[in-house]
Nucleic acid binder design. Structure first.
Length: 330
DNA sequence: ATGGTTTTTACTGCGTC
DNA sequence: GACGCGGTAAAAACCAT
């Protein structure tokens, strides 16, 4: 980490087409890594627990906390031997990644190769171990569901945290015997949908319908069912959470996003949002914001990316702009 | 099942490029 | 004439009861 050559500040290859918000963020980040005396680049020296300036040598910080292991290893072999932790557990694997695995190398504990007799025995053990590991029907069920969740999450570009949560929800549904009578795909989809909303990363039902093997009707039915049975707390989706995605898909800039958020917050205060579809609201706000910042998008384009009819956009954005007028009057 | 609300579909007229 | 936009009526979808 500290042995690489110090990075001197350069401004040569920084492109100028970045937006305001980005440059200010960058400046703030730079501020933290710059020497207060000569504004040279700061370097962390983990060996001595100090942060020093690479140019003038000023020690800016002492007694840094070393988060690394307390032992030292000089090659990968030694690292394996001295390390006392294994892989993290994860809910994304049906047994949380904790089950026994029999190594594939035909070596004994001392690293010596096994006799052909022993090798065959090990092969049989591996086979059986694998069978026992997934023997239970529930476990098999879970394995399939988690595969399904993973597939859909990838297709929708949902982060790992959402998959984890979806896995937990599915596991609970399984434990409470909510599965009989319902398809694995249906419950998987519902779990992922719920997880996405809980973690403020909502995708619309239509988007799910696009990647799930299940009909929309079954999806909603199953979703409602598991939410009720599991007592999940799912907040109504906040329109603002759709804004960034719509903005980026329409190639609009940050100004539009800020404006759209402001409009939505106004609308929320004026309580004209209840009962209306959050997606439609978000789409209308994006359209209105683009209009207010003189950037051209058509209602059609917005409707396209949001999967919302133009009429709905019209109705919503009319309301949003009316609010705007009232604010100007007052 | 039913009624009330919201969204969608389909159609129309207006103005602009 | 195609396109974007605004409006309307009727159908469809949704939701709570």
């Amino acid at each position: 980490m500290s042995n690489s050559t110090p990075q001197h500040p350069t401004t040569i290859n920084r492109t100028e087409q970045t937006t305001d918000s980005q440059t200010t963020e960058e400046q703030q980040r730079d501020e933290a890594t710059r020497c207060p005396e000569c504004s040279g680049q700061l370097v962390t020296d983990n060996e001595h627990g100090e942060t020093v300036c690479a140019d003038c040598g000023l020690v800016v910080e002492t007694d840094n906390v070393d988060h690394g292991p307390e032992w030292r290893a000089f090659d990968s072999n030694e690292r394996d031997q001295k390390s006392r932790v294994g892989a993290p557990t994860t809910n994304m694997m049906h047994d949380k990644g904790l089950s026994t695995n029999i190594g594939w190398q035909d070596k004994d504990a001392y690293g010596k190769s096994l006799s052909s007799n022993q090798r065959q025995k090990m092969q049989r053990l591996r086979t059986w171990n694998e069978r026992f590991r997934t023997r239970d029907s529930k476990e098999r069920n879970l394995k399939q569901a988690l595969g399904e969740i993973d597939r859909m999450a990838s297709a929708l570009g949902l982060p790992d945290a959402v998959r984890e949560t979806a896995s937990v929800i599915y596991r609970r549904a399984l434990d409470e015997d909510l599965l009989p009578g319902r398809s694995i795909e249906g419950v998987s989809t519902a779990a992922l949908y719920a997880a996405a909303r809980q973690l403020n990363n909502p995708r619309s039902l239509d988007e799910f319908a696009g990647v799930s093997r299940v009909e929309k009707m079954e999806m909603t039915r199953t979703y409602r069912y598991i939410v009720r049975e599991l007592g999940l707390e799912v907040e109504p989706a906040d329109p603002e959470q759709y804004v960034p995605r719509f903005v980026s898909r329409l190639d609009l800039d940050g100004e539009v996003e800020r404006e759209a958020r402001r409009l939505l917050r106004n609308a929320k205060d004026a309580a004209i949002t209840s009962g209306k579809s959050p997606v439609g609201l978000a789409a209308a706000a994006v359209y209105a914001a683009a209009l207010l910042t003189n950037q051209k998008v058509t209602q059609n384009q917005v409707g396209e990316v949001a999967d919302i009819s133009e009429v709905t956009i019209r109705n919503r954005y009319k309301e949003l702009l009316e609010l705007e007028h009232e604010d100007l009057v007052n």
